[in-house]
């Protein structure tokens, strides 16, 4: 319930109109949205119980490692009931398979639609979505870790909170099923990072400073 309260309201995309190239416009719009979401995500992370108690080095490591996974939980969640099998990055930024392909995001599209379908089949509750998002960050396998015991405790707290929630719903296998969806999330995030780095390096798509800094940390 604490995580639900601190969950930021969804952002709207600011549609780019600096170019006539439709695909480039889509990418620029998406990158601007991601940069703003990233800013919110960092503020959000600080409100997860236990996060601010970690060393600054570990806070940085977890975010540098897990930011894309944490952001994509929301995208997959919003995309799950999209009739046209779109990726719903924002209410006013919905990309279908063809648009993703044209923008160089075909592989990301496949992985995220797979994840969205999985979330839909599991009928995730909002509580489970925010728990997954926090766990993606806590479980980001940053290496090296400055204080492994503190990071472990942070993970254990979140795991306990999720288990407590599921046992109140008498769903014995639910926690395990949620955790088993994390590898697909990591795969999707890996594809997203590769796609945006490729767009930046090979197609010279300009990126905002924070987004570039976080992508570079993953490179």
């Amino acid at each position: 319930s604490h995580l639900l309260l601190t969950e930021p309201a969804p952002l709207e995309a600011n549609h780019d109109d600096s170019t006539d190239d439709g695909s480039l416009r889509t990418v620029l719009t998406l990158c601007d949205l991601l940069n703003r979401e990233l800013l919110l995500l960092i503020g959000w992370a600080k409100q997860i119980p236990g996060f601010s108690g970690l060393s600054l080095v570990d806070q940085m490591s977890l975010l540098q490692s897990g930011w894309m996974e944490a952001l994509l939980v929301g995208v997959a969640w919003r995309s799950q009931s999209s009739a046209g099998e779109e990726l719903v990055f924002a209410d006013n930024l919905r990309l279908d398979a063809a648009q993703c392909r044209a923008a160089g995001l075909a592989e990301l599209y496949e992985a995220l639609r797979h994840l969205a379908a999985k979330y839909q089949a599991m009928k995730l509750s909002p509580e489970e979505v925010v728990a997954l998002k926090a766990m993606a960050l806590a479980n980001s396998d940053a290496d090296p870790v400055d204080c492994p015991d503190s990071v472990q405790r942070f993970q254990d707290w979140l795991h306990e909170a999720l288990q407590e929630y599921e046992s109140s719903r008498r769903e014995q296998h639910r926690t395990g099923r949620l955790l088993m969806s994390l590898p697909l999330l990591r795969q999707a995030a890996g594809r997203a990072v590769q796609a945006f780095l490729r767009l930046h390096r090979h197609s010279s798509v300009p990126l905002h400073k924070l987004l570039l800094e976080m992508l570079d940390a993953k490179a």
Partner: peptide
């Protein structure tokens, strides 16, 4: 840390 200046600053700012 120099390389990750923005993240570092954002984390150090109070919430």
């Amino acid at each position: 840390k120099e390389k990750h200046k923005i993240l570092h600053q954002l984390l150090q700012n109070s919430t």
